[in-house]
Computed example of a mutant assay.
Amino acid sequence: MKPTKDDTHAIVELLDVLLREGAVIQADVVVTVADIPLIGISLRAAIAGMTTMTEYGLFNEWDATHRER
């Protein structure tokens, strides 16, 4: 049996879904030294295409400003 190569690429499909549907990534990080918490960091990132972002009410002002140019 010969190996076959699929015509679709996983990374392209992943990017397509991210831009079309979007994703929210959230992380909480605590930096400790000798079991003593020093810094707490809360991170949140929204990844999506501009069309998806504006549908959810994000970056509306920015989008309108840049479309006027």
Rank of each mutant, 00 (worst) to 15 (best):
I47G: 01
E21Q: 04
S42D: 14
F59M: 13
T52L: 03
D35W: 01
L38P: 01
A48P: 01
V24L: 08
E68V: 10
T52V: 11
E55Y: 05
G57I: 05
V30N: 03
N60I: 15
Q26M: 07
L38D: 01
A27C: 13
D16P: 01
E13Y: 03
V30I: 07
E55N: 13
L58V: 10
L43V: 14
E61N: 14
E55L: 05
H66V: 12
G40A: 11
V17Y: 02
I36L: 11
A23K: 11
A23W: 09
A46E: 09
V17I: 13
Y56E: 11
E68S: 14
G57E: 10
A34G: 11
E21H: 03
L58T: 07
Q26I: 11
G22N: 00
A34I: 05
E13R: 08
I39F: 06
G57Q: 09
G57N: 09
G22P: 00
T52Q: 12
H66N: 14
I39M: 04
V33P: 01
G49V: 00
P37F: 00
V30K: 02
V33D: 06
R20V: 09
T65G: 11
V31Y: 13
T51E: 15
L15H: 06
E21M: 02
W62C: 07
I39N: 04
I36W: 05
V29I: 12
E68A: 15
M53R: 10
Q26K: 15
A34T: 10
I36S: 06
R44D: 07
T65F: 15
I47S: 03
A64W: 05
L14K: 07
T54I: 07
D28P: 01
T32C: 10
Q26C: 12
L58I: 13
G49K: 02
T52P: 03
S42C: 06
G22F: 00
T54N: 06
L18E: 00
H66Y: 15
M53T: 02
E68G: 12
V30S: 04
F59G: 06
L19Y: 02
D28L: 07
I47F: 05
I36F: 08
A46M: 14
V31Q: 11
G22A: 00
A27R: 15
L38R: 03
A27E: 15
D28W: 02
A45G: 14
P37Q: 01
L58E: 08
L18K: 01
D63L: 07
L19S: 03
A27H: 08
R20H: 07
I47V: 13
G49Y: 02
E61Y: 13
A27Q: 11
T52D: 11
L18W: 02
T51I: 09
I39P: 00
G57P: 03
M53H: 07
Y56I: 13
E68D: 12
I36M: 09
R44Q: 10
P37Y: 01
G57H: 04
R67E: 13
L43A: 15
W62S: 12
L43P: 05
R67G: 09
Y56Q: 14
T51N: 14
V24F: 05
G49P: 01
L38A: 07
G22W: 00
G49L: 01
